[in-house]
Design a protein around this nucleic acid. Structure first.
Lengths: 218, 218, 218, 218
DNA sequence: GATGAATGAGCCTTCATTCAT
DNA sequence: GATGAATGAAGGCTCATTCAT
């Protein structure tokens, strides 16, 4: 767990409720990252959160629902994160697309637990349909954004490639990156991930990510 | 479960042993594919295999070891499969590399349970180090083959790209494909996966997979 | 089981904890007495105590530890019992030694389960070293007390016998008594056990337990 | 286990039967001595005997019955042993009684497994009535012999003691000795056991085991 | 006769949930 | 609201026994 912030328990009821829910969600993320989804027991949540066992059922009714909230939390946080990165990028499709990629590539250097937990849900969604809507890459806002950026680039560059194909290629690459990273975070090097993605983009959108752009990137 | 082949139980002891072990391994693959790794209980294995509960411990000592054998089985089967595909390809690096990719792309149209089970182990390996050696893409024979084929292509085509980068890009793409497929096998279309990969290869190895080659592919 | 005292379950938590632990310990003693140490299963403990199966692990973590606590309980209760008997005796070594013997001889008329359970642990200690410290007669406070009383008598009477030998003889006799009693409690007669011990004491400490004393005893 | 005698398996069927039964009985004694009665599993018997698992049921039908045979074997061997010691003694009650005691006292220096196994059955007999007849000291030929020797001594010496009391005292002492020895065979010293018994005999039969006799013993 | 593969009952333990405190 | 004691279902494993080989 990262440095335990010594935030005091709020006195007001509605604030306390939020406080406890958040503590349990954080504990769950940590537990998933360390022991996998099936390694999350109520006892372990109590241990990791420092709260009583009954809190899970009090605040989320069922362990099930807590996990669902955790997934929502992860999805929201991820979306907020890449949208924030997007908002800082220049207002051109190429720059914005690269901002998305760079955000993913770079983020793997920190933020371990959340990423691993996300992957755990991603896997669980295969057999547990309840998680699917929140996990399906193709349905996410991220994928939508990538698609619209690709569409803009294709229109602008006159490329002979379908939007769907371009967007899928990019997301496949990023997902492969996640998995590769997750198996051994120590081994992962942002630089090599970046080059792999850049090369791919240069291939499908040469006028936007071709040699000139690559030189600028180093 | 696929159609239950009515293979009679062998009478000879050594054959029966192999027969039952195989039955348990198949049952495990099926159970993993349906319920995830943590959904594999001895009772469920008994149910899926039609054998007694004690058989798991009799033939594999611990459930643990059965699962390890399942993973080995999956790894072996996958390796045998792509190697067979490789052996049928023309003796040129480009053709051979494409044979590998095509094998992966096409295989997702069948073979559901094995693939999903493999992904489950892949995920489990993140938190359970015991599975890691058999799951780490970078250490596999597959990745080694991809690397040596890339090396040959780079030498032949004089490309300005590191072997590692090229090989990683290809495997990331394929792994992304696996995940995308796994979440909804019905949705998956081999054709679109093929195009995504082809486009990528054309980008990094244009002299081998460029326009001319793409035209040939359709 | 002896008549189930209808003591209501305490409402206060700390009292309830003691109450349930005690109930389980009593159930264990009863189960050991009826079925032997290896006949104590969690199911049987639940049955005998009227509590849920999970209570064993809740209150003692492992069945193992419950049994250890049972042994401690038996040892404590036995010690308290003979010490109480000792405290009521006159302040002379002979009277005190006899009080100890009489306590053992007489107690076998009641208190069945505890005694049989104790013997079961005594036996188990032979192959399970964990029980040994609490079972070893020679290390017990009882043996120490017997020794010091013997020492006092030897000094007072000028007997030509080692303290260790005298004390061992007495404890051997008492242990033989226990075993003989345990095989058939119905057959056991305190009177005959008493005579056997008295005769022995008269032999090694004639000036304290000789004819005159024997006459007084009846 | 003591040095494994390399006796070849007999060819003749009836001899082979005896041979295997004996091997299983020896294995059982060893297993009981090491792991206690409840630690004797068919697997362990197979391991210790070097025979197949099915042999237990083939030769003894049930594990139960094998154990019963083991107890009979132990009882027979013990009886043969003390009777042999008795036959070597001089033809006087005192000498014969002492031969019995000495046999017991001295035997504890070797013969570990059989003694510990015997004690295990002795304990088990408390809760399992099936073992009782073969374990009950008071019913055994040994006790009968002790009683008749005591009777002879009482008649000869004109002692004022009941036969039963005298015989019980002696057997209690010896049983106490067994238990004390069993908890720590390393600690046991035959000499001290001998002195304890001698002192006791001198007390109840002074004319036969009094000072003069004691001096002779050292 | 001898073997060990196959069975299913029973073992201890962990678990999510309920609910009195 | 917050706690953790109590429950009983389900988990993996060991076992004695049966019986085909």
């Amino acid at each position: 767990m990262p440095a335990q912030e010594p935030v005091a328990r709020p006195r007001r009821r509605d604030e306390a409720k939020i406080y406890f829910r958040r503590k349990l969600i954080d504990a769950a993320i940590e537990a998933i990252a360390r022991h996998g989804l099936s390694g999350v027991s109520v006892s372990r949540l109590a241990e990791y959160s420092g709260l009583a066992r009954g809190m899970v059922n009090l605040h989320f009714d069922r362990k099930d629902r807590l996990l669902h909230e955790v997934l929502k939390h992860l999805a929201d946080a991820y979306r907020a994160s890449w949208q924030e990165a997007l908002s800082r990028a220049a207002d051109e499709p190429a720059a914005r697309l690269w901002a998305l990629v760079e955000h993913d590539v770079a983020r793997k250097a920190h933020d371990d637990s959340a990423l691993i937990a996300w992957l755990a849900f991603r896997q669980e969604a295969i057999t547990n349909p309840a998680y699917r809507p929140l996990c399906d890459t193709r349905e996410s806002a991220f994928f939508g954004t990538v698609k619209s950026l690709c569409a803009a680039l294709i229109k602008d560059g006159g490329y002979d490639i379908k939007v769907e194909t371009a967007a899928l290629g990019i997301t496949f690459l990023l997902e492969g990156l996640w998995l590769d990273w997750s198996l051994d975070p120590q081994r992962y090097r942002p630089a090599s991930g970046r080059v792999v993605c850049r090369t791919h983009l240069a291939a499908i959108f040469p006028r936007h990510f071709g040699k000139a752009a690559r030189a600028a990137d180093g």
